[in-house]
């Protein structure tokens, strides 16, 4: 059984030189191997190359140098384009600009229709996907009347209907309010846990990144840190140096350590943080 679903090998990418401008190197030797079934967050500031990386994962962009493999298929192989895109689904930031149809279920059917799936199978795929994201009861609604979080869940359902093995989400919550953000994040987690779909979440929200199994930090087109969130967020100074922050819980413990304490920096949840502080206060 294969374990790696997405793999990049010394991936470089630069936008070609335009008049009066030099070619801009956006990805600078990225080696990444993503295991099937995992939940990986890619964290980085604006312009770090994280969205460009995402666009390489289903052949929207092709490498300037190096290779990208999806389930062993080279993304540069044009003959495999549809196979690659049905393996890796993409969800983008603005839900309005990825919904094609005027009715929820018809939008959801768009992918399978393109793949030439027989009608009665499409029906089942659509119903199943809408149920997974909890939007089945809205199947006959018009998308433009739904909330941002609901629209984004429709977009996720539209991708799920193609039965992808992996879903890449490029800042899916950036335009949402806290309620929408929570809805989408819970949907993403359920996707990974109950459906076994590999999830790659591109984000600059520390608290979202903290929920992943594995956290990849990017800066200036390179991966600068890679590991479980609990470990990565301990590198408070390194993260701050590249324009990122850490969750407030870690920040507090870090600030206390600067006063001479020696607290563990792995408290990502409120509970862990409270426990760490309680131990500190209890100690004599």
């Amino acid at each position: 059984m294969e374990t790696s679903i997405l793999k990049t090998e010394s991936l470089t990418f630069s936008y070609p030189a335009e008049e009066g401008k030099e070619a801009r190197l956006v990805l600078d030797g990225v080696d990444l191997d993503i295991e099937a079934g995992s939940f990986v967050a890619v964290l980085g500031h604006n312009g770090s190359g994280k969205s460009t990386l995402a666009k390489h994962l289903n052949a929207i962009l092709l490498p300037s140098g190096g290779k990208v493999y999806v389930s062993g298929m080279d993304t540069a192989d044009e003959a495999r384009l549809l196979a690659i895109r049905r393996t890796v689904g993409m969800v983008f930031q603005n839900p309005d600009n990825q919904i094609v149809a005027n009715v929820v279920e018809e939008d959801c059917a768009f992918g399978p229709e393109n793949l030439g799936v027989p009608p009665d199978e499409i029906r089942k795929l659509v119903d199943d996907s809408l149920k997974i994201v909890g939007m089945y009861s809205y199947r006959e609604h018009a998308p433009h009347l739904l909330s941002g979080g609901q629209k984004q869940r429709i977009a996720i359902a539209g991708v799920l209907a193609m039965k992808p093995r992996c879903v890449v989400l490029d800042e899916p919550t950036a335009m949402l309010d806290p309620i929408g953000r929570r809805e989408v994040l819970e949907t993403i987690k359920a996707l990974n846990e109950t459906q076994g779909v590999t999830v790659v979440l591109i984000t600059h929200h520390m608290d979202e990144a903290a929920q992943a199994h594995r956290l990849v930090v990017m800066s200036k087109g390179k991966i600068i840190s890679d590991g479980p969130p609990k470990e990565v967020f301990q590198q408070v100074e390194a993260l701050k140096a590249v324009g990122l922050t850490v969750p407030e819980t870690v920040e507090l413990l870090y600030e206390l350590n600067r006063e001479g304490f020696d607290l563990p920096l792995d408290a990502l949840s409120d509970e862990d943080c409270a426990q760490a502080l309680y131990q500190l206060l209890k100690k004599d």
């Binding site: 929207i60 094609v100 399978p112 393109n114 030439g116 499409i122």
Partner: peptide, 20 residues
Amino acid sequence: ELAVAMECRCYHGGEGRTRM
């Protein structure tokens, strides 16, 4: 953005397309 999103959902014209 819509064009990219449609491509990601395997849109490649009317050929071989089915309907729900």
